[in-house]
């Protein structure tokens, strides 16, 4: 567990010990398992993929097999301290609804997503005139799970519109490392964004 991805390590720092956590699109349950051990959290992961569900069970994570497109109607308001969504917001059909749902069932939300404003992507589109690809966005346009591409500015504008207060923001490179200089021009230099936010 020592090689936890840096983005997950940042999230872990944000989580108060003993809190209740919901992880949307929890994958194989790595983050939740880590949080269970190091932050003594309780809660659930939601996951659609069968192999991931089995991996979660092996990881000792309570997982609910479901499609996030169904929403979070199975959960009561304020059931969780944190609702997490790593690298999934860009893959859902209606991100604005899901963001609101996150803050209906949870006190705070934490998301990570690939920044479409990253300079290399801008350059590819400007110079080649084709949909950009990168380590963080490795799929062809016609065969990508990432159907909602947006930038840091887009995200922050949406949060403003939805009455969401941003508490913290980090930008990372594609290997999820923090680079001191990216904070100067995050929307240009950050490949991956991490936000923590709450209802205003």
């Amino acid at each position: 567990m020592s090689e936890l991805r840096p983005d997950l390590a940042i999230i872990t720092q944000w989580i108060e010990p003993g809190s209740r956590v919901l992880d949307l699109g929890c994958g194989d349950g790595t983050l939740l398992k880590y949080l269970q051990i190091h932050r003594k959290v309780s809660g659930y992961g939601l996951e659609i993929d069968h192999d991931n569900v089995v991996a979660c069970i092996r990881n000792g994570v309570d997982v609910i097999q479901t499609d996030l497109a169904r929403g979070l109607s199975d959960f009561d308001p304020d059931s969780f301290d944190y609702v997490l969504m790593t690298q999934t917001l860009q893959a859902v059909n209606r991100p604005h609804i899901l963001l609101q749902e996150m803050l209906r069932v949870g006190r705070q939300g934490i998301v990570t997503f690939p920044n479409f404003g990253y300079w290399r992507l801008r350059l590819q589109l400007a110079l080649k005139g084709r949909m950009p690809m990168s380590e963080a966005l490795p799929h062809m346009w016609y065969d990508t799970p990432n159907i909602r591409l947006f930038t840091l500015r887009d995200f922050e504008a949406l949060c403003h519109e939805l009455g969401i207060r941003i508490l913290e923001r980090y930008v990372l490179d594609h290997a999820h490392r923090r680079r001191a200089w990216s904070d100067l021009l995050p929307n240009l230099l950050g490949e991956i964004a991490i936000y923590r936010f709450e209802r205003r």
Partner: peptide
Amino acid sequence: LDGDKDVTYA
């Protein structure tokens, strides 16, 4: 889930 019980669903 309502009762915060441990549950896994497949």
